[in-house]
């Protein structure tokens, strides 16, 4: 499923809404999660999962082509942990 299909499904369930409003609603949800993570905040959606950020420490990497050492600076990466309900549901029903 891609974003446009998600939007279409929501639009089909809500015939009183304009498609462009459904697009804005779906985009707002992901934009809000993105904004939270970029502030270093967590987003906890019970039953679904939690988005957070993890810090990867600076390390000494290596250029695989030349073998040369290169410093890799500290970075922050987004992380998602699946919620309990979703994890259980994924394992209850037979694989699709």
């Amino acid at each position: 499923m891609i974003k446009s299909e998600l939007i279409q499904q929501i639009a089909d369930d809500n015939p009183h809404l304009f498609q462009r409003d459904v697009e804005r609603i779906v985009s707002t949800v992901f934009d809000e999660i993105t904004a939270a993570l970029s502030r270093g905040d967590r987003v906890e959606l019970r039953g679904f999962g939690a988005f957070s950020v993890k810090t990867r420490e600076a390390r000494l990497g290596r250029n695989p082509r030349t073998g040369e050492s290169v410093p890799v600076p500290e970075k922050v990466v987004p992380f998602f942990k699946t919620g309990k309900d979703l994890r259980e549901r994924m394992n209850k029903e037979p694989a699709g």
Partner: peptide, 29 residues
């Protein structure tokens, strides 16, 4: 509406489908 967005995504994943949200990320099973 927020709830139904999460429900639709969950439903697809439970069915074994992946969910790709452009400029955000991809959920794969």
């Amino acid at each position: 509406l927020v709830e139904s967005i999460l429900d639709k995504i969950s439903e697809a994943l439970v069915n074994g489908d992946s969910v790709k949200i452009s400029s955000f990320g991809t959920f794969t099973v």
